[in-house]
Computed example of a mutant assay.
Amino acid sequence: MDKTIRGKGIGNEIEEFCTELAKKRNCDRLEVHCHSRRIDAHRFYSRQGYTESPKYFIKMIK
């Protein structure tokens, strides 16, 4: 994310919109994939109430 727009509440608005949409669609969860190097994003998701689910498998194809 561009650091000049960080902290303006845009991510929060998007996350709130997605949460409300998921509720309307009777979803039981939201899941996001966030690379381990994105520490600021991890803090954001934690503040939003997300919990970490560390098991994730990737198979690279050549």
Rank of each mutant, 00 (worst) to 15 (best):
D2G: 02
K3N: 13
T4Q: 11
I5V: 13
R6Y: 11
K8F: 01
I10P: 05
G11Q: 08
G11C: 15
N12S: 14
N12W: 06
E13V: 08
E13N: 15
E13M: 12
I14A: 06
I14D: 05
F17E: 10
T19V: 04
T19I: 10
E20F: 01
L21V: 06
A22Q: 03
K23H: 04
K24N: 05
R25H: 01
R25Y: 00
N26W: 07
N26T: 02
N26Y: 04
C27Y: 00
R29V: 10
R29N: 13
R29C: 14
V32P: 11
V32E: 14
S36C: 05
S36Y: 12
R38W: 10
D40H: 05
A41R: 03
A41D: 08
H42R: 11
H42P: 11
R43T: 13
R43L: 11
F44S: 07
Y45T: 03
Q48C: 09
Q48S: 01
Q48P: 03
G49C: 09
G49L: 06
Y50S: 00
Y50D: 10
Y50G: 02
Y50C: 10
Y50V: 08
E52N: 14
S53R: 09
Y56T: 10
F57R: 04
I58V: 07
I61H: 10
I61T: 04
K62T: 09
K62E: 10
